[in-house]
Design a protein around this nucleic acid. Sequence first.
DNA 1: TTCCAGGGGTAGA
DNA 2: TCTACCCATGGA
Length: 303
Amino acid sequence: MPSIHILVKPPYNFAASVCDHGWPSLAPNHWLADEQTLQRAERLHSGDVVLLRIHAGASEGHDPVQVCIDVESAHELTPGEEQEIAEKVRWMLKLDEDLAHFYVRAQGNAGIWAQVQSGRGRLLRSPTLWEDVVKTIATTNVTWSNTCSMIERLVTHLGDPFPLVPDLRAFPTPDQVAAADPALFATEIRMGYRNAYVQQLAHEIVSGVRDLEELRRAELPATELKRELKSIKGVGDYAAHTLLMLLGHYGELAIDSELRAFVTGRYFPEESPTPKEMAAIYEDWADWKYLAYWFDSNTPSTS
DNA sequence: TTCCAGGGGTAGA
DNA sequence: TCTACCCATGGA
C-alpha cells in the first residue's frame, strides 16, 4: 500500500488538532480512535475513489512531526495522484497556516495556553469549500446528531463508492447533488428545508454562476470573503463565520446556541447578554477571536 | 404534545 | 438595522 509522508514543523499535535471540533465525525470522515487515524474515502480529479488513512508518524522532541497518508486504491497511483492527495491533506489539516501570532497571543492567557501549547489550533476542514459549505448549512438549527445523520445520508445516497469496500463512499460532487431527484432529498436524504439550499448551491456551481474553489484559493480579505459566503442561500452570520474560520480567518465569532450557553454561563451568570456583549468578551483577541473562544470553552473555569 | 437544536430567509417597519 | 414569522427534521 503506498504511503505519502508530510513533515510538519512543530508544535503540531495531529490527533488533538483533528479532533478539536466535530468535523471528523461527519461522513465521509471517520475517526478510528484505537488507531488514532482519520479515515476517508476520497474522489480524485480522475473520478477514481481511493481510501485515505491519515495518522501521525513517529517523531521525537523537536523533530518535525510526520503525517502519514496510507492510500488504498484499486489501481496503482500515478505521481500526479500522489501529489493531489498530499495537497488535499495539507489543506484539510491546515498545515500551511501560520499560527505563530496566535501562539504568542495565547501565552498571555494561562487557561488557553494550557490548551494550545501542545500544537493545537489547526481545526480539521474538508478538501473542498463546497463540502464545508454543505456541512455548515447542515449544522444550522439542528442537533449535532441530526447533522451527522443528514450528512451520512447525503454521502450514502449520492457519493461514489470506494471499489474495494463499496460501503465506504466519497463526498458527492456538486454535479451529483445537482443531478439528484429532489424527491430523493425529500424522502431519503431528509435535510428538511436545507434540501433546496444545498441543491441550489450545486446548480449554481455546475452552471458556472459560482466557483467555490476559486473563492477558496483566492486570498481575499475576510470582509470580501464574508460577503461572498453570505450570498449563498442558507448561509447567514453564524455559517459565514464558521466558514471564515475554516478558511483561516479567526476574527469573527460564530454565535450559536453553544457559544451563547458557554459565554452566558461563564461571563454573564445574572443576565442574558446581547450578541455584541458576547463578542466583547473576546474583543482583545482581534484576529484570533474564534480560536480564543474555542479553547476558552474547553478550559475549566477558575472561579 | 411541545420544545428546540452548533439559524436563516423574507417582509415590513 | 430590527422584529415577527415561518421553515423540515428528529430527539428529549
